[in-house]
Design a protein around this nucleic acid. Structure first.
Lengths: 203, 203
DNA sequence: GAACATTATTGTACGACGTACATTTTGTGC
DNA sequence: GCACAAAATGTACGTCGTACAATAATGTTC
């Protein structure tokens, strides 16, 4: 029994991942065809040809199927984005660039974001690292870098500041989803501006 | 038919308010006795001696019963709080004092805040003024005052800034509800500090 | 590789929760 | 008072998620 799960996934774990992907893909197809709300868990199970209980075991709620897909998308896209912003001179500009990319992505997934965001807020009680949103980790990383740089104030933990930024991000996103005023990218700029005025060291 | 509903409430509206209070009070008693989660809508209706459909008509979800009570509490407490903080010299200190008061209140209602906050986030799509949280309006008011004062930057609308502050408030509150680290008041101080460094004009 | 232990999947049946609707009661305007 | 509108009642129903016992698949030990 190896304690390094990554080195010995075993067939069971492989099949699990396979089933997860299969379920999420089946669900996604249905979402795109019928709209998120119109799709029922029973229908997903039926189309995926598994028992209802099996689907519920892997994905206790419909939104978890979205998470599975989005996390995979994020994991696939992140390296390229990081490479893209790595060349920028300051963490401030990196944050702006990152949010600009995020705005594009959000516009493409607009239809799913409202239920998804609510779901993520509802499961905030899960503190497990792998459950933390990708955003949280990206923000933590960049802010820590900015602190090491001397760009940002050092008197707060980067995790705390990242948490603040994440909720400011949510504020903007929800406003955009509901009111649909200016472009999301512009709203992110505004928010970052306000946040950074406090985050940046006074010179 | 008067178009001023406040001038001609009518018996119907009076009874409605009466029923609302009765339902919310009955529910509150049950919540305190059995815990929020353990109380069912059916039980509330039964104890209040109304049909299930009637309860659902006034309060589509259980959390709405909390909102009714909390809004009333807020409305009752606000005047005193405003009077208390009015004497403070700057809006910055007023914000600190207000959040300190809010921290006390939150600690007393801790058990209900998690479901309540989630509920409020879920109904964010309701843009009606009377639905906007009391906090939102308090923050707007204070920030507008701070802008008029010359304390705060003027390049953003107070409503937008209040929205940011509200989500930072939520960030702190949720962290406290889930992780239970330092005292809520301290966490509010920290958050306000970060927010104000950006909100305050550089001198 | 054979027997045992563990975990996952199936299918069904059940219970809780919210909704719909026809009926009755209550309030409003003439 | 009467006629109309609106709200409350109670029941019946449909949906959704869960529980459970039986079965299948995987992992482990010798």
């Amino acid at each position: 029994m190896s304690h390094l799960e990554s080195s010995a996934p075993g067939r069971r774990e492989r099949k699990r991942q396979q089933t997860l992907d299969h379920l999420a893909n089946t669900a996604w197809t249905l979402f795109e065809a019928l709209g998120f709300d119109a799709v029922t868990m029973e229908r997903i199970a039926e189309d995926a040809d598994v028992a209802k209980g099996t689907l519920y075991k892997h994905f206790p709620v419909k939104e978890a199927l979205l998470r599975h897909r989005f996390h995979r998308e994020l994991a696939d896209a992140l390296p390229a984005v990081f490479q893209e912003i790595a060349g920028l001179p300051t963490v401030e500009t990196q944050l702006h660039a990152f949010l600009a990319r995020n705005a594009e992505w959000s516009e493409q997934h607009r239809a799913y974001l409202l239920p998804y965001v609510r779901f993520r807020l509802s499961e905030a009680h899960v503190k497990a690292v792998e459950q933390r949103s990708g955003l949280d980790q990206v923000f933590s990383h960049l802010i820590r870098q900015g602190q090491a740089n001397g760009e940002f104030r050092m008197d707060y933990a980067p995790e705390l500041l990242a948490n603040y930024l994440q909720f400011l991000y949510l504020a903007v996103l929800l406003r955009w989803l509901l009111d649909e005023g200016d472009s999301l990218a512009v709203e992110f700029e505004r928010m970052l501006n306000v946040f950074l005025q406090g985050l940046k060291k006074p010179e």
